[in-house]
Structure formats: structure tokens, C-alpha cells
Amino acid sequence: MENQEIPKMTLLFLSSFCVIAISRAVVSNRIGINYGQLGNNLPTPARSIELLRNMNTGRVKLYDADHEILNLLSGTDIDVAITVANDEISGIAASQHLADQWVYEHIIAHYPRTRIRFILVGNEVFSSISTPEDMQTARDLVRAIRRIKNTVKALGIRNIKIGTPLAMDMMETLTFPPSNGSFKPQIQQLMVPLLKYINGTKSFFFINVYPYITWVESQVWNQTAISLEFALLRPGDENYKDPQTGLVYTNLLDQMLDSVVYAMAKLGYDDVMLAIGETGWPHEGESGANRDNAGEYINNLVRKMSVVPSLGTPARPGVVIPTFIYSLYDENQKYGPATERQWGLLNPDGSPVYEVNMTIGL
């Protein structure tokens, strides 16, 4: 029940060990990878799934619900996140029948042989609310999530979590110090019902979080604001102490995650579980974008997020944070600056751009 009163210490315990209505597969420490297809030189889906399996990938996140890929994942031990497109949100929000249709077509056709564990409704919906159409989509988001959940629940499926990935541009303030983290005023009216529903269904708040972008921006505004080592999660002596909480941070990712934790708490939701929908480091492009840095960030990330027992963050020690790396390939048809197309782990021929050990912490 969404309004059930549970003591905070009990909620913290439950969120830390993830024992209520969540399968072990969902909360495992296995690292995931985003598999996008915005390229004209990418390997076939069959080859891509083979590569994911060879890399010991624990999870894969799709930006759609492609039947061919879902069929190819059937019988594997890879947990799968699929996505409802942004332009489908308002229709589903308005019609339980359309929600039923979507679930039957994209879930029931493949589940349970394909280990679908997450349904993500939209992608970064709150990042574009400047037009009436975009704002309507944002307002319809929770209703669409609820309708998808209704169908899944009616079918007796209990091990699929439903949420939506949001970008860090939802934040008004973040990072220094994390305890000052807050959401932009213009989206708080959208955020409250979303957090209420995610919390009530014991799902995850997915965020796309990029220390690289925050580090680059810090170099533009203040050359000494954030060191490269801190952004790369490099173990060392550097740390930052939050003056309000006394918590000590040894890397930028933890600061960014905890800024979201504190932002949620300011809206009355201090126990919502986090997941990382996207994070990575470009291997070519602007300052700091090279293969050495990308390889170091990804391997440090895998080490941090896959270690058992889980490290969590300073504000939430020991909590599992499901994590998806961005991305499997460079995608040469993506919009934006050149760096936007240089985040892949693999070249188009399937060879590694740099060496990654996906089981470093296990």
C-alpha cells in the first residue's frame, strides 16, 4: 500500500537488503549494458547477444522492446530491461486497453523464457517540457506507469519492476555538497507523484548519471572544481566532506547519487531505491575523453558496483544499486557533438575499444 506507515529504521533495513517483493535477480550486483542501435555499421542482433554473453554481462537495457532481440535473449541468464517509447506514453495513460495490448505484445510474447526484469516507461521524459506536448507527456507519465503495472500485476507477474529513467538535468543543485541536492522547482509537481508511486510499488528510481559531464562542466566554470581522479572513481587520498552531514566522499559518482537521495528526502521520500540507467565515459572527443580514462572509469565502476557485499554510497551504505553502462557500441547516427557518438565498449567488428572486466567485483 502506498500510504502504509513503516518505521524509518525498518524501511532503511528493507531498502538495504531489498527483501520485500523483489526477486534476487532484480537486486543482484551483476552489471548491465545499454544496447542501442542508432548506427549503420553495427553487428547483427544475434552477434550482439553473443558478444554480451561472452562479456559475462549480467543485464542488458534496450531502448525499445525489439522482438528479434527479445527472442535471441530467450533462454539466456541475462536480465533484461525494455522501454516504452516516449511517444507511446500519453496513449497508454489514456487507455488501459492500450496498456494491456502493449504488455501482451512485448512481455507475454517473451516472458518468462526471456528474463524481463524491468519495464522502463519513457526515457528522460522530464528533460524536455518546453512545449505543451512535452509537458502533457510528462504529466501522463505516472498514469502510464500505473496502467502498465496494473496489467503486469493482473497477470500475476511479481518479478518485473516498472519505472522511468530521468537525467541529472532534473536537479537544481547537486554535488557540492550532496546534502544541498534539490530538484528544479518546475518539475517538483511532476516528481512528487512519481516518487510516491515508485516508493509504493517498491521499484527503483532510475537516473542517468555521468560524472564525465559534470567534470567537463566544472573545467569550464572553475578549473579546480573537480579533479579528474575524483571523477574517474580512482582510489586515492582525495576526498570531500559534506559540511552538513559529515559524510566523506571519495568519488564524484557517490556525490551525484547522494545529491538525488537528499533531493528525494526533501520531498518526503528518503527510502526510494536508486538504479543507474546510464553511466559511462567517452573514449574520444572533448577534454578528458580518451581510451585510458574511459577504461579506468568503467573498470572502477564495475569494481565498485559489483562487489559483494555492496558498498552503496555514504548516505546509503551497503545498498545494491542496479547499474547499466552506456553503451555497448559507438552509435554513429546519434545527434549532438562528436563525443555523443563515442561511448561504446565495442568496435563495430566486435573487438573491445578497451579492456573491461565485467566480473571484477564478484
Rank of each mutant, 00 (worst) to 15 (best):
E2M: 12
E2S: 12
E5S: 15
I20T: 09
I20Q: 06
A25S: 07
V27C: 13
R30F: 02
L42I: 06
P43C: 14
T44S: 15
P45L: 11
M55L: 04
Y63M: 05
D64G: 11
A65L: 13
A65F: 12
D66N: 11
I78A: 06
T83K: 14
A85Y: 13
G91R: 05
A93G: 08
L98F: 03
L98Y: 04
A99P: 08
Q101C: 09
W102K: 04
H106D: 10
A109K: 07
A138P: 15
V152G: 03
K153M: 04
L155I: 08
I157G: 03
I157N: 02
K161V: 03
I162D: 06
A167N: 11
M168S: 03
M168Y: 03
D169K: 12
D169H: 13
F176R: 15
P177N: 10
Q188Y: 13
L195N: 07
K196A: 06
K196N: 05
Y197L: 07
I198P: 08
K202T: 13
I207S: 10
N208F: 09
Y210C: 02
E217Y: 12
V220H: 14
N222D: 10
A225S: 02
A225T: 00
E229R: 08
E229Y: 06
E238Q: 11
D242T: 06
P243D: 06
T245A: 08
L252Y: 02
M256S: 06
D270H: 10
D271L: 11
M273S: 14
M273A: 15
A275M: 00
I276K: 02
G277F: 09
G280E: 01
R291E: 15
N293H: 14
N293K: 10
A294H: 09
N299K: 01
N299T: 00
V307K: 03
R316T: 03
S327M: 00
S327F: 01
P337V: 13
E340A: 14
Q342C: 07
Q342F: 06
G344A: 09
G344I: 06
S351V: 03
Y354W: 08
E355Q: 02
V356Q: 00
